[in-house]
Design a protein around this nucleic acid. Structure first.
Lengths: 161, 161
DNA sequence: CAAGATTGACTGATCAATCTTC
DNA sequence: GAAGATTGATCAGTCAATCTTG
């Protein structure tokens, strides 16, 4: 057996290797899916549109969206500028609290996500589901949810993407 | 049961949700580990140093390193500039093929990775291993290797990180 | 004074084009 | 001509500071 400074525990190499596999698999799948998607829509645009279209009312606040796609608020403001310039979303003032700004889908935004999403789903199916199979993917999902929730806390509503 | 346009197959939502969990867990862990590492060493620096220190001779070519950390060659040249300016690595001309440049660890680079790596391992243990447990993490690793290898092809040597 | 959003300065990556060497 | 590395132009993100509203 190999030596370790964790008496009786798991090898460091094993932990680092397995975490490394998650990182590498994530990067490889992201890249492949982007190729298969074959779209000119920037990835952050897609992330935003997806979350908006899956939300009742098709609108979320700037802060909420920024957090969900793990952007800084400053970075998200500029992303919002670009998406609004592209006609995919509009800013809507919040009447209740005049500090907050809603981001809402435009018809063009709905059309864009409606056009890309089926291809994206096909890409993920081909890259992930067809390789792992249904059961293994479900098992991985369970573990990943544990990881996520141990850090972010469980979600009030499931809006994974 | 819910409807699907994949007759008898897996639901789209299920696939997208599970893949989304991988993406979110990856992002959350990356962020948390970075916090726990508590280092001023930029992440790409760490990635490069780690691969160098784990390589016999402590040297790899620019292209090879660029590919391993999934950088463009142009981007890696500039990363190498910064790391060399920081005294962590040196470029070494290859005598056999004068097109290639080796990147080699300096003593300062060895010291830097030697100092951060134990903390990093502890961060990953606390964030990943302690949450999933040894067996579940190993299972996830198996699936992630399948994903990676189905895209990149199996590695000649295991150098995960 | 805290929270949401924006702005400006800066950093770090990509891409396409170029240079050298095989 | 192809491969490895570099360069210049550009782009998209962070961070710290600011403004407004609660």
């Amino acid at each position: 057996m190999a030596p370790s400074w964790h008496d009786g525990g798991v090898e460091d190499d094993e932990v680092i290797t397995n975490w490394g596999l998650i990182v590498e698999a994530h990067a490889a799948v992201m890249k492949r899916v982007a190729e298969l998607d074959n779209t000119d829509l920037p990835a952050p645009f897609f992330e935003v549109l997806l979350r908006l279209v899956r939300t009742p009312g098709h609108r979320l606040t700037m802060s909420q969206l920024a957090h969900e796609i793990t952007f800084s608020t400053g970075g998200f403001t500029k992303l919002a500028d670009r998406m609004e310039a592209a006609g995919l979303v509009v800013r809507v003032a919040c009447p209740n609290d005049r500090r907050v700004t809603w981001m809402a889908l435009t018809p063009a935004g709905e059309a864009a996500i409606g056009e890309i999403l089926p291809r994206h789903i096909a890409s993920v199916r081909a890259t992930v589901l067809d390789v792992l199979g249904e059961d293994a993917l479900a098992d991985v999902g369970i573990q990943m949810r544990k990881l996520r929730d141990s850090i972010n806390g469980p979600r009030r509503e499931e809006l994974d993407a």
